[in-house]
Simulated scan of single mutants.
Amino acid sequence: MKVYLDDERETPEGWTRVYWPDDAIELLRTGQVTEISLDHDLGDDNRGTGYDVVKWIEEQVATNHFVPPKIKVHSANISARQKMELGIASIHRLACR
Rank of each mutant, 00 (worst) to 15 (best):
P69Q: 09
L86N: 15
V61T: 12
V33C: 04
L94S: 12
L42A: 07
D23W: 00
V61N: 04
V67E: 07
G31D: 01
V18S: 05
W15Q: 08
L28M: 13
M84L: 07
D39L: 05
D45C: 05
G50C: 10
I57R: 00
A24W: 11
Y51R: 15
T49D: 03
W56T: 04
N64L: 13
V33F: 11
V53T: 05
Q32M: 03
S37I: 00
W15T: 01
K70T: 05
G31C: 05
V73R: 04
Y4C: 09
P68A: 11
V33E: 02
Y51S: 08
H92T: 09
V54M: 09
I36D: 03
I71G: 07
D41H: 08
P69K: 13
I25K: 13
W20K: 12
I91C: 05
W56K: 12
L42D: 09
W20H: 02
L86A: 14
R29M: 07
E26L: 11
G43F: 08
S90M: 15
D6R: 05
R47V: 05
F66I: 10
D39W: 03
V61P: 00
I88C: 00
I71Q: 07
M84E: 07
T63E: 10
V33Q: 06
K2A: 01
P21I: 12
E85L: 06
L5W: 11
Y51N: 09
D7P: 03
T30K: 10
I71M: 02
H65L: 13
E58P: 04
A95Y: 15
G48L: 13
S37N: 14
